[in-house]
């Protein structure tokens, strides 16, 4: 790509770089044995996806991706990894290579089939022109949440409440009758 650094092509160049980072890091998430290494690679994947969101004009979503996802949710991951402090034998032996190979083949076939089926539909969508001043900004998305999706937004608070109650209930008591096998 000789024109990769041309100002018009910079977003596309950045997209492909971030895409490669995201794919490599996500492969490492799936393959690394050490949970901390996995979590760090997951952060890298989430950050590169945040960059891609910003390139796709989703500025507010990109900010939320970094603040909530790479910030809060990954802290929960790290916290649990630290809390359990798993040894190698507690993590358990990896699956046999034949099972792994079969899973990769199966999923690759699934993705390939979906790509072949949907390629024409995706290519047929015309690119609409968007207003770069307001599209994807906090004002625009905030208006959507508090007006068009108000019911869903309010139900989200109930959802979080149920999640908190469930998590506290599950983590705080001993389950009787566990341990038999």
């Amino acid at each position: 790509m000789p024109d990769a650094l041309h100002p018009d092509n910079l977003p596309a160049t950045a997209f492909y770089l971030l895409a490669v980072v995201a794919i490599v890091a996500s492969i490492l998430v799936v393959t690394r044995r050490n949970p901390v290494a996995q979590a760090m690679n997951l952060i890298l994947t989430l950050l590169s996806l945040a960059g891609i969101f910003a390139l796709l004009q989703a500025h507010f979503v990109a900010a939320i991706q970094i603040l909530v996802y790479a910030g809060a949710i990954l802290v929960v991951f790290i916290f649990v990894i630290m809390l359990l402090n798993l040894s190698d034998e507690e993590i358990g032996p990896p699956r046999p290579s034949i099972a792994k190979g079969l899973a990769v083949l199966l999923v690759a076939a699934m993705i390939w089939g979906a790509a072949v089926r949907c390629a024409d539909d995706v290519l047929a969508i015309p690119a609409a022109t968007l207003d770069p001043g307001s599209y994807g900004t906090l004002a625009s998305v905030g208006l959507l949440i508090y007006r068009d999706y108000l019911l869903a937004f309010e139900l989200t608070s109930l959802f979080i409440l149920i999640g908190i109650v469930g998590a506290v209930l599950l983590a705080s008591r001993k389950v009787s009758g566990g341990g038999d096998k």
């Binding site: 939320i64 909530v68 809060a72 929960v76 949440i145 999706y149 989200t156 979080i160 469930g166």
Partner: peptide, 27 residues
């Protein structure tokens, strides 16, 4: 592609869902 940012609101709901899923799952 469609120049509509309604999906951005949906993405926010998915992020909330991921947070709750992580909390309950780790519990």
């Amino acid at each position: 592609q469609y120049a509509g940012d309604g999906a951005h609101a949906v993405v926010l709901f998915i992020v909330v869902l991921a947070a709750v899923e992580a909390a309950v799952g780790f519990a």
